Simulated scan of single mutants.
Amino acid sequence: MDPVVAGLVIVAVGLLLCFLGVGSVHLAVITSGFGLGWMLGDLFGASQSTALLIGVLGGLVAWIAVAFVFKLAAFFIGIVTGAVIGAKLYGTVSGDSGNWVLAAIIVVAVAAACGFLADRYRRRALLWLTTIGGAGIVLGGLGRVSPDSLGFLRDPAPGWEQVVSFLAWVALALAGWVVQRRLFARRLGIERDEEPSKR
Results as ranks from 00 to 15, higher is better:
Ser97Lys: 07
Ala113Arg: 01
Arg120Ser: 13
Ala185Asp: 11
Ile79Phe: 11
Ser197Gln: 11
Thr81Arg: 01
Phe70Leu: 12
Ile54Phe: 14
Ile30Arg: 02
Arg192Pro: 01
Gly59Ile: 03
Ala185Lys: 05
Gly23Asp: 04
Asp2His: 11
Val22Tyr: 04
Ala157Thr: 12
Ala87Met: 03
Leu127Ser: 03
Arg154Glu: 06
Ala104His: 00
Trp128Asn: 08
Ile85Glu: 02
Arg181Gly: 02
Ala74Cys: 01
Ile30Val: 15
Trp38Met: 13
Gly23Trp: 01
Leu15Thr: 11
Asn99Met: 06
Leu53Ile: 14
Ser146Ile: 10
Gly59Cys: 10
Trp100His: 14
Leu172Arg: 10
Gly159His: 05
Ile132Ser: 05
Ala175Ser: 14
Asp96Ala: 14
Ala65Thr: 15
Gly159Asp: 06
Pro156Arg: 07
Val164Asn: 04
Phe68Met: 05
Gly143Tyr: 00
Cys18Tyr: 01
Gly115Pro: 02
Phe70Thr: 10
Tyr90Pro: 03
Pro3Trp: 09
Phe166Ala: 15
Phe68Thr: 02
Ser97Asp: 15
Gly41Glu: 01
Leu117Arg: 00
Val25Leu: 12
Ile132Thr: 06
Ala73Arg: 01
Gln180His: 09
Leu27Arg: 09
Gly151Tyr: 03
Ala113Lys: 00
Arg144Ser: 07
His26Pro: 00
Leu167Met: 14
Trp160Phe: 10
Val170Met: 14
Phe116Gly: 08
Glu195Arg: 13
Ile105Tyr: 08
Arg144Pro: 02
Phe75Gln: 06
Gln48His: 13
Val13Tyr: 01
Val163Gly: 00
Lys71Cys: 04
Asp148Gly: 12
Gly86Gln: 05
Gly133Met: 03
Ala171Ile: 05
Gly33Gln: 08
Ala73Val: 07
Ala118Ile: 04
Asp193Met: 14
Ala83Asn: 11
Gly143Glu: 04
Val179Gly: 00
Val101Glu: 11
Phe166Gly: 03
Leu57Thr: 09
Leu167Ser: 07
Leu27Ser: 08
Gln48Met: 12
Val80Met: 04
Ser24Met: 04
Val4Thr: 14
Trp63Ala: 13
Gly21Asp: 07
Gly33Phe: 06
Pro196Tyr: 10
Glu194Ala: 15
Phe75Arg: 03
Leu20Glu: 07
Val163Ile: 15
Leu139Val: 06
Ile79Lys: 03
Ala125Asn: 07
Val164Asp: 04
